[in-house]
Amino acid sequence: MDQSLINDKPTKYMNPYLAGIGLGLVLLASFVVMGRGLGASGAFSTLIAAGTNIVSPEHAKSNAYFSEYLGLNLSETLKDWLLFEVIGVVIGGFVSGLFAGRIKLKTDKGPNISNGKRYLFAFIGGGLMGVGAKIARGCTSGQALTGGASLAFGSWVFMMMVFAGGYMFAYFIRRQWR
């Protein structure tokens, strides 16, 4: 698995620096056209706020956090820039995967772990990611990438902390990936 990962890299994926330049130009376009950067987790918050509002409007409106994401009605709540951007990400990811022949229903995991365990870890990791992104007011896209390019001090601190947290914990979870 490790071996194939390394061998696959040059043929399968784009030169990382060229992909980075492409990503950077997209980010730059967002700055120039919109005056803002990219994001991802904000769209998830909008969905959760809208969902909570459908199930229990009083509950959502009284919640200090969700209420910030709510518009006057459902369609206004969903007319969120980041939500539309993430819809674009789905399309863009799919198109790229299609051209590269990478669209396939499968579970991506290390060789020494069962599917069930991988799903459990994915859920736990996702949950931590959701909480962490909300505490930090952004994830790798909104803070690290966007804030990094606009030289925001706090975003650079955030970026270092993401790598620090990842490397510190990597040892404990190594059996999942190796």
Binding site: A40, G97, D108, R137, V162, A164, W177
Partner: peptide, 27 residues
Amino acid sequence: VGGLILGVGFVIGGYCPGTSVVACATG
């Protein structure tokens, strides 16, 4: 605090929010 939690979540879950959307789109 958020960055550290996010980093731990990254290595456990294997994605960050943006990349997970792309991974969903590719199945």
